[in-house]
Design a protein around this nucleic acid. Structure first.
Length: 828
RNA sequence: GCCCGGAUGGUGGAACGGUAUACACGGCGGCCUCAAAAGCCGCUGCCUUUACGGGCUUGUGGGUUCGAAUCCCACUCCGGGUACCA
């Protein structure tokens, strides 16, 4: 082939980007009326430095979906924004003195430049940054709606304090007792903080998962995080003090097996209970030790159980037995009532404690041997029937017994069925600078007073010193802090904490629908046209935090009448990591691949196509520089063939008349239709972009062979095959595809409908069938597709290669799958 | 510990229970060239055989089936999530 055609992405890519920018091709109106809408959203980036390879991957995935949806006739919203408040920018400010606003602005510019350089089809008219007053004004407005509805509240609470970041953290941001970002051991502090009442939505957050198409493991993570447990609350009475101690249990069926009772060290009654028992000193020592133990240590279930007796007893409500009380750190104050009934016969933890302290272990459930029950292993948690309990319940299956016992407790006023959650309310206040101000004023006379809505936004003031000192740096901005109370006019002070940045990102997908509205956060009528997000795409690391918070926001806003859907994201796709040499990319490892470098060297189309080609997008993918060259070669070849064909004979890219084609050209046509079918199925199903790209490669290779090797290919068939390849490739490599398509046809590929496979051309007259003996392939033959079972069997039997393997054996059975195979089962 | 994933050539990865290893990388050979690059044309799972051919092969061991990478059981290793949540 002539070398005069040289694929030059440096020329092609800017040229098409200019067309899309000048014509605002990807901007979309809110006039959805009567059209099939598709809201395709990739999680917004946190702008820091330059985009990394993970961004390239996730936006390549999102763009492929957006393009496919557009070309299949949908009205597509594909916006972009920046999660622009947050600690890294602020920490940078502490180090360098550069205002976070300035460093963030620079990062946003470089992200925007890259996304444009990559040719991602974004509607830039809806761009937003969460740190802009015209965005966070509405974050504050939502806060006020929640405040007025009692969903945002302030209370003194035991909270997680990160001593490095010098701020409190939400439960979700504490991992193994350490701050998620800083890695510092979290300290317990008692502080006044702001919370969102997400626990009110625990049930709906669990139940709503059934309505959305999300990966099962993400749903499971959310269910586990919310941690709904069904059980009962049962009251145990301490007669000495005349105090009732309710406990939560998921196993009321084992109540008769309770042999002791344990309180958490933080329980407020500990001192009162120990007083006058002679155990006071021991108890006080133990509690002090427990409270100063690391959360991490205390959470270790393998540690030998510790605890001390309180010298008191409580009454087991079902049998009146007096059982001893203990304080032990394996019981947590945060969960249930901070007290448990201990059933060592049927709970591992209680069993461990009982063994350590030599307490009685009583079996009250017995496995049924026929049903895989055990004989003597305690603690026993399997299925079974009640024993050693009460004549009314003994012999009942444990599930039936559970219900019967709860009914009995309820009648006697000693308990009731109850549900408990692991989920805690969302602590949203942070003692940091670079965040959304909380629109509240503290007045000595009026208490907490919301800033009137017409005074929003509460603008984040400039400060001299960003360094946290255990209180928000905003407290130093005295001009800003001191304001008259909106209610009584007397001197008052602004709230100086800022919001967790997860608040900002819990509603941004709503704002995109009506991003420039300065009268409201959004017009409910417009939101209604777009919501919910049809396809959300992002990293699995947000499985709990962001995805749970956003779901809560939408449900709460729906209850307040601002949104009319219950779930923000109908479908979720989580993409895998990009690794290098099998390891996560990191500066310290020195294995970071920069998308800027690869785009500069090979072009955006190559970078995007390669990252989707190496592996299915939901899997982790290992980056290999050599692999990039293969994709570059493929794009070069497709472009060169197209450029040459465009200059050659023939016109346009209409499909040539099938009747007039040689068998070889007909095969090429079939291949094109096969590729249409394959790519369409791969796109519409589970995003099998890697095999879709392979199919286009196969088609291109066939064209290449037709042109180079065979040499006599009908030009119109070649044109059609190449235009089809370009059309199918467009979602992945838009510039080269648009260029090749335009050269061949003069048309803009993105304005063309997605190609449709001709089913008649997919059908074949002759097919290859295989002949097997005992499942092993022995011969193959080309036969008419319509060959009957009998004909196939006869052909197989006649094959000498098959005959050789039948020698001296008896044919037991012949299986014929028309159009596929004949399998002869033999014996002897 | 518990709950999810995963394991296929030298490498990344393909395969509605029906031709295992598509596509790509890497490797080998050839054409073109003064030469190189680019491009083009082949070959490339393993063992055995001069060859024709034959045998083996989807982490391990069993099972179901005419037929298993695919379904079932047990196990090994790797990755992720989660963990005194009563």
């Amino acid at each position: 082939m002539s070398t005069e055609y040289r694929y030059d992405p440096e020329e092609i890519e800017p040229r098409w980007q200019k067309v899309w920018a000048d014509e605002r091709t990807w901007e979309v109106s809110n006039d959805v009326e009567g059209r099939d809408k598709s809201y395709v959203l990739v999680m917004l980036p946190y702008p820091s430095g330059e985009p990394h390879i993970g961004h390239l991957k996730v936006y390549s995935v999102g763009d492929a979906v957006a393009h496919f949806h557009r070309r299949t006739g949908r009205h597509v919203l594909n916006p972009m924004g920046y999660d622009a408040f947050g600690l890294p920018a602020e920490n940078n400010a502490i180090k360098t003195g550069e205002h976070p606003r300035d460093s963030t602005k620079k990062s946003i510019e470089s992200f925007r430049r890259q996304f444009k350089r990559w040719g991602i089809s974004i509607d830039w008219s809806r761009e937003l940054a969460t740190c802009e007053p015209d965005y966070y004004r509405w974050t504050q407005w939502i806060f006020l709606q929640f405040y007025n509805a009692g969903l945002a509240y302030r209370k003194a609470a035991t909270v997680n304090w990160d001593p490095v970041e010098e701020t409190v953290l939400a439960n979700e941001q504490v991992v193994d007792g350490r701050g998620e970002r800083s890695g510092a051991l979290v300290e317990v502090r008692h502080l006044e903080q702001w919370f969102f009442r997400i626990t009110d939505y625990a049930d709906r957050l669990v139940d709503g998962l059934d309505e959305i198409e999300w990966p099962e493991h993400v749903k499971t993570m959310q269910r586990n995080w919310i941690g709904r447990s069904e059980g009962a609350e049962v009251t145990f009475r301490c007669e000495d003090l005349g105090v009732d101690y309710p406990v939560f249990t998921t196993r009321p069926d084992t109540l008769f097996g309770a042999t002791f009772f344990v309180l958490a060290p933080e329980h407020p009654d500990i001192e009162k209970l120990a007083a006058g028992t002679g155990h006071e000193d021991e108890v006080r020592d133990y509690v002090n030790r427990a409270l100063t133990t690391d959360k991490e240590d205390r959470g270790n279930a393998d540690r030998t159980k510790t605890g001390v007796p309180l010298g008191r007893t409580v009454t087991n409500p079902v049998n009146g037995e007096q059982i001893p009380m203990f304080v032990a750190d394996y019981v947590l104050m945060e969960y249930g009532t901070g007290a448990v009934m201990a059933v060592p016969g049927h709970d591992q933890r209680d069993y461990d404690f009982a063994k350590t302290f030599d307490l009685p272990v009583k079996r009250v459930v017995e496995g049924v041997p026929d049903e895989g029950g055990d004989e003597d292993g305690l603690p026993y948690t399997g299925p079974g029937v009640l024993v050693n309990s009460h004549p009314d319940f003994d012999g009942l299956d444990k599930t039936a017994a559970l219900e019967a016992i709860v009914r009995w407790l309820d009648r006697e006023g000693k308990g009731n069925s109850s549900t408990n959650y692991r989920l805690r309310d969302w602590l949203l206040s942070r003692q940091r600078y670079w965040g959304c101000p909380i629109p509240i004023i503290h007045c000595e006379a009026c208490g907490t007073v919301p800033v009137p809505e017409d005074q929003l936004p509460v603008i984040l003031p400039d400060v001299e010193d960003y360094k946290p000192k255990g209180r928000s740096p905003l407290a130093a901005a005295t001009d800003w802090v001191n304001v008259p109370c909106p209610s009584c006019g007397k001197p008052a002070k602004r709230e100086t904490d800022t919001m967790d940045t997860f608040v900002d990102s819990s509603w941004y997908f709503l704002r995109y629908t009506d991003a420039s509205n300065d009268e409201a956060a959004w017009d409910p009528e417009i939101l209604k046209r777009w919501a919910p997000v049809d396809q959300y795409i992002g990293g699995v690391e947000h499985a709990i935090l962001h995805l749970l918070y956003a779901r809560f926001f939408v449900k709460a806003l729906a209850d307040l009448g601002h949104v009319d859907v219950q779930e923000p994201f109908a479908k979720l796709f989580t993409q895998g990591m990009v690794t290098k040499d099998g390891a996560k990319m990191s500066k310290s490892r020195g294995n970071v691949v920069s998308p800027q470098d690869i785009v500069a060297a090979r072009g955006a189309d190559t970078a995007r196509t390669y990252i989707l080609f190496i592996a299915p997008p939901d899997q982790d993918a290992d980056w290999a520089d050599e692999g990039v060259d293969g994709v570059y070669r493929f794009l070069s070849r497709l472009w060169r063939l197209s450029a040459a064909a465009a200059d050659g004979p023939g016109a346009g890219a209409d499909q040539p008349d099938v009747e007039s084609l040689s068998p070889a050209d007909l095969e090429l046509l079939r291949k094109a239709h096969w590729a249409i079918e394959k790519v369409t199925n791969d796109m519409a199903g589970r995003f099998n972009f890697n095999t879709a790209i392979s199919a286009v490669m196969e088609l291109t290779n066939d064209v290449s062979r037709a042109v180079n090797e065979r040499g006599d290919a009908e030009p119109q068939a070649v044109r059609f095959a190449l235009a089809t390849a370009a059309s199918l490739l467009f979602p992945f490599a838009p510039h080269v595809a648009a260029d090749a398509y335009s050269k061949l046809t003069g048309d803009r590929v993105w304005e063309q409908p997605w190609p449709a496979a001709d089913s008649e051309l997919l059908e074949r007259d002759t097919v290859e069938v295989v002949f097997q003996v005992n499942g092993k392939v022995r011969d193959r033959a080309s036969v008419p597709a319509t060959a009957s079972k009998n004909e196939l069997e006869a052909l197989a039997m006649a094959s000498p290669k098959v005959q050789a393997h039948l020698e001296g054996k008896t044919v037991a059975k012949v299986i014929v799958v028309p159009g596929k195979l004949v399998n002869i089962a033999v014996r002897g």
